[in-house]
């Protein structure tokens, strides 16, 4: 069953000097529980594609249909709520709130969702334990390593029980040990919660773990391959 259907997705940047087609008429579907890497060189349109997929960047034309909902036909308020309840984000530079502890960062999105305090606390504890840093629940981001911060970001992305998680270059700031560990974790989360993971990356270690690799260049899909992984 398709979780995400993308039809003719296009993004054109009109600058004073030149017109740039960052994403040029992409048609693609993603299924529930996929572990997909969107790969391509810098400037190929990966991040723009991911942003449009996640309801952050409005496409020039085309449709993003998630669970039957045409995302870009929602009002801005509906779109915010849709993002909150259906999409988890993992960013390259973690983007944790520096004044909140790891636990509070994870809990925050559930607070926005209006979940009861008891449920929030329990899920935060479970998620941080699941990502392997249950003992750092009260540590602020500045006291955590890059790998640990990205684990908190993954826990935060999972906290709202989203349909899928979009990760933009999640390993770009991590060393190889932290990268392997994070990929193991995301693979485990993918299996455990059956959450769809879509990465934008050009990190070979991530590509090696992906079950599906979509290669983009000049805003167009060059190839779309599926692999059997352990």
């Amino acid at each position: 069953m398709n979780v995400i259907e993308i039809k003719g997705l296009t993004k054109i940047y009109n600058t004073s000097e030149v017109i740039v087609k960052a994403v040029n008429g992409i048609d693609i579907n993603f299924e529930k529980g996929e572990f997909t890497a969107i790969v391509g060189p810098s400037g190929s349109g990966k991040t723009t594609f991911l942003n449009m997929l996640g309801g952050l960047d409005k496409p020039t034309s085309g449709k993003v249909i998630i669970g039957g909902v045409d995302v870009w036909k929602l009002s801005s308020r509906q779109l915010i709520d849709f993002r909150m309840n259906n999409i988890g984000f993992v960013f390259q530079s973690y983007n944790l709130i520096p004044v909140l502890t790891a636990g509070e960062n994870v809990e925050f999105i559930m607070h926005l969702q209006g979940k009861p305090k008891k449920e929030r606390k329990q899920r935060t504890k479970d998620l941080l334990e699941a990502v392997g840093i249950g003992n750092r629940i009260n540590a602020r981001p500045s006291k955590l390593s890059g790998g640990q911060q990205q684990r908190v970001a993954v826990a935060r992305a999972l906290a709202s029980k989203p349909e899928f998680i979009l990760a933009d270059e999640p390993t770009a700031n991590l060393d190889s040990t932290a990268t392997n560990s994070l990929l193991e974790l995301m693979s485990k989360m993918n299996k455990k919660y059956n959450t769809t993971f879509i990465f934008a990356t050009h990190d070979q270690r991530v590509i090696d773990k992906a079950h599906r690799i979509v290669t983009i260049e000049d805003g167009k899909i060059l190839s779309d391959e599926c692999f059997e992984r352990d």
Partner: peptide, 13 residues
């Protein structure tokens, strides 16, 4: 950036 992130994860206006 932080405000952008808050908007992205679902904090309304």
């Amino acid at each position: 950036k932080e405000i952008g992130m808050l908007m992205a994860i679902g904090m309304n206006k």
